[in-house]
Amino acid sequence: MANAQTANGGTSVLTRWMNNRNLMGMLFMLPAGTILLIFLTYPLALGVWLGMTDVKVGRPGVFVGLENFAWLMEDSVFLLSVFNTFLYTIVASIIKFGLGLWLAIILNNNIPIKAFIRAIVLLPFIVPTVLSALAFWWIYDSQDSVLSWILIEMGVIDKTIDFLGDPNNARASVIAANIWRGIPFVAITLLAGLQTIPRTLYEAATIDGANEWQRFTRITFPLLTPIIAVVMTFSVLFTFTDFQLIWVMTRGGPINATHLMATLSYQRGIVGGALGEGAAIAVAMIPFLLAAILFSYFGLQNRKWQRGGRDD
């Protein structure tokens, strides 16, 4: 008996360690924790620090405090990019939400080959954005645009539209491309939400004489709000920080009309080499992102019961 215990002495320490939740937790968290701390948390802090220096590529900078931000506040291009970002985010998100919800409601009907249609609807979301942006670039081309040609053949217009050359046209065009890319995500996630709503509610409401619009506003919409809150937060977040679509189609042009904060940050920081200034522009996005996240957090917290879920 005693012998057995001593023989097992070495392993029993190990076993005790193995059963220590905190120790094992630390061990299991190690790979993810290391990568995230080194390549996510640290750069986040480094970004804020860089935003307060005048580092350039190949030249160490000095601390300049909030000077970058003060400069940016008077920089008309930066202010234009903030305006563009808001315009892009607000218009695109609202339309994405409207069309996405509509598509979700359509898909929630009984349709033949539903699974196949749903798979196709998601395509714009999974195909690399850069590559579909290239297709849009061709569709919007000033001379070879297929859209212009179709409209000319139909007799709607008589000369080609300069989609990406005119500031307002360019804004509308990139927003349209962003909406195209974003609808599937909104529609499919909202569809998942729609499917959790019990049909009996609709039946009961119908018996009580509710029409379709009333069923939508009194049943569908309230029960869907928690998912809408999350989906729209994600959508706003990704639209606000969008880079790919703009960079491929316009590079911020014409005359900075489509520069978003992310593209301006790249333009100044990497292309122009002013790392400090670029970082400052990126940091300026953080308050808005925090606002979106807080919105989602509270949107979620209050309404968990609506899905019939328990607050756990």
Binding site: F39, L46, T241, D242, A262, S265, I270, L275
Partner: peptide, 19 residues
């Protein structure tokens, strides 16, 4: 971890490039 999911690459690429 959830918050980390919400950090977009467009605010990290400059410091990451330096690193």
């Amino acid at each position: 971890i959830f918050l980390a999911y919400l950090v977009p690459p467009s605010i990290l690429f400059i410091p990451l490039a330096v690193m």
